[in-house]
């Protein structure tokens, strides 16, 4: 009897100690602020970045494009969907279907945008679809980084997302169909394991240790105007996911959490 109780309590503890983690759609490239133009690699991975944990299988993305703008020139949109190559990305615990491509960047801002296929999360009996943005600048000449690109779910940066020093704040505005989302819930994760593009895998080595599970995935809320503020404590890539922006979000008859994700970088002052 004692044995049975021990087993049951062990199982219960295991069930409750599954680490709090969030799904994050990544668009990864090593540098957000490049000195010179040229070919840049991009990897699209749907994963748990702080722990380099379970990596989900991505379906064929609905949209993947870049909006390039330089100075006062009109922003120009280029479809990149046909350039994507399927790959397998290895996390610390598994491997999942992902995509990669290469893009030739010249001067100014390049807003890369991904609308992935909705992902079925069996544990929640619901779908997740994270529209993701990352902004790469070449040469320091700004463009339209602060303009919405028109995604249904979108985070618009209020600070240049590629010029942050460690310790600066990052501010963004959460939009659903172009309108601010008051009090949107935002989850934040640090890209704690360096993505190794040549190995299509995360580095085993972590750069930060969370003292407790709450620190793996930080949570903040936007204000009444859909604006959120986050002080950046460490250099590297930080992901922000504003959750469930479409109150009627559904896909194939099931609930679908339509989220907006943005990745930004910070650099140490040296």
């Amino acid at each position: 009897m004692k044995h049975v109780i021990t087993t049951i309590s062990t199982l219960a503890i295991l069930a409750f100690t599954v680490p709090a983690f969030a799904h994050f759609q990544m668009i990864y490239t090593p540098e957000a602020a490049l000195t010179k133009g040229g070919k840049i690699p991009l990897a699209l991975v749907f994963t748990h970045p702080f722990e380099a944990g379970h990596t989900m299988d991505m379906g064929s993305p609905e949209q993947f494009f870049v909006v390039r703008s330089r100075g006062e020139n009109e922003p120009k949109k280029t479809d990149l969907l046909s350039t994507l190559t399927p790959i397998n990305w290895t996390s610390l615990t598994n491997s999942g279907k992902a995509y990669e491509t290469e893009y030739t960047a010249r001067g100014g801002d390049h807003v890369f945008c991904l609308v992935p296929a909705p992902y079925f999360e069996a544990g929640e009996d619901a779908y997740i679809q994270q529209s993701t943005k990352v902004i790469v600048n070449v040469g320091g000449e700004p463009g339209a980084w602060m303009e919405p690109v028109g995604l249904d779910c979108e985070i618009v940066p209020l600070c240049k997302p590629y010029d942050r020093w460690t310790g600066n704040v990052f501010q963004g505005k959460v939009l659903f169909k172009g309108k601010p989302v008051p009090n949107a819930e935002i989850e934040i994760e640090f890209m704690n394991h360096k993505p190794l593009l040549d190995k299509k895998a995360f580095a085993r080595q972590a750069s930060a240790v969370a003292p407790q599970d709450a620190f793996v995935l930080q949570t903040i809320f936007a204000d009444d105007n859909g604006v959120f503020t986050f002080g950046i404590p460490k250099a590297g890539w930080w992901g922000f996911a504003a959750l469930g922006l479409d109150p009627e979000g559904s896909y194939k008859g099931k609930e679908c959490s339509r989220d907006a994700v943005i990745w930004i970088t910070a650099v140490d002052m040296k």
Partner: peptide
């Protein structure tokens, strides 16, 4: 050659 200014103004 692409010219410009760091404040985004036109060249």
């Amino acid at each position: 050659c692409e010219g410009g200014f760091s404040d985004g103004s036109s060249a």
